[in-house]
Design a protein around this nucleic acid. Sequence first.
DNA 1: CCAAAAGTGTTACAAGTACACCCATGA
DNA 2: TCATGGGTGTACTTGTAACACTTTTGG
Lengths: 224, 224
Amino acid sequence: MALEDYERPSVAADIVIFTIKNEKLKILLIKRGVEPFIDSWALPGGFIKMDEDLDDSAKRELKEETGVTPKYLEQLYTFGDVKRDPRGRVISITYFALIDYEKSQPKLNAKTDAKEAKWFSINDLPELAFDHKKILSYALKRLKWKFEYTAIAFTFLPEKFTFPQLRMLYEIVFSKKFDKRNFRKKILALNILQETNEKITKVSYRPPQLYKLKENISEIIELI
Amino acid sequence: MALEDYERPSVAADIVIFTIKNEKLKILLIKRGVEPFIDSWALPGGFIKMDEDLDDSAKRELKEETGVTPKYLEQLYTFGDVKRDPRGRVISITYFALIDYEKSQPKLNAKTDAKEAKWFSINDLPELAFDHKKILSYALKRLKWKFEYTAIAFTFLPEKFTFPQLRMLYEIVFSKKFDKRNFRKKILALNILQETNEKITKVSYRPPQLYKLKENISEIIELI
DNA sequence: CCAAAAGTGTTACAAGTACACCCATGA
DNA sequence: TCATGGGTGTACTTGTAACACTTTTGG
């Protein structure tokens, strides 16, 4: 049962990274510079190295290909159908990541196999390489689930944010409107927000109040 | 970017399979017949083959080592820390499986690397090989989650079952008592059960009624 | 003073929880 | 007739959903 007795598959990490910009839910894609699927859009990712843990690999690939560092990262699912990659057996450990929309400017690194890195609105996507469409659909389910049962929405927001901003996130993710009174009541009941005495300025209507997460809440977002 | 340019890790599938027997939650372990961790108890599993999909690999390993065919199987998580296996880089795609307690007699296959296969109560476990304790703890979380948000509990039961049986499952999984009136009300509200006109016999108290899942419900257990 | 979006409170309905007595059976 | 666990209904509490008017600001 020595490890050498077995033929080994290639193992890659691929990342679905979401942000929200201009009131749209977006994901970051790269344009492939190599075969197969050259010039197709695909999820950022690449082969894992033998001396790095899986999460580190996902972070590195994302950083190398797109210059982006996620605020939140978790493993999504492992796809490994025999024929998902025309080059041979490639198992893809996929990741689900989120980034603050203010910090989401991709910077392409020319040294990688990616020709281009670009945010695409989820409603206006190109054809994707490999089985990446399936992966994305899985990631979208996870995103909705996380919004419903955890406080992960805050990772899309800057330190200080308003209720209208937060509500907008939920409205985008679930593609429906939420009543602002009920929404506020529900969030406040979680008892994780702290009012600041600052307001948004330069809006030609009643300016919304800024809130922030209470101290020590940021780390327990998963637990709600 | 040819696949050959990358060193490849070994990839295994390991399975946490649960059953309920004698009012105890149990998992199936094998006693390792080879190094490393020879004579230690471990999750059943083994290296994936190049021509089989991941789920098939998990099913095959389970069958080969323990003779058991799961009623329910889903991917759990992929563990791949650099040093989780002393032999070298081994990534483990883990599975979560359930089996009807009436069909859960393991039959050891002598041709494998397992010396023995045995059900262990979750409250009375031996030391486990590798990082299998961590994997098990993850599987337990998933089990509770599935019980809470899906109708997966029925996979532990035979075709016809009683409310007391079903309630017992929940009490075992959550280690707490449920009020029998409220429990019944909640399950009936799901509208997935059909009363039969049969009862349990040979009990020295009022015999409980047998129920079964409505037609076409078995397949949508995930959706509740 | 107008336009725009923020902020606020009450009522109705549904879901969940707590709780105690009678029933059917085998021994 | 007794012991055992099964079966049932009601009141209370909590959470969710529906809904309309006043407030603050910049232009």
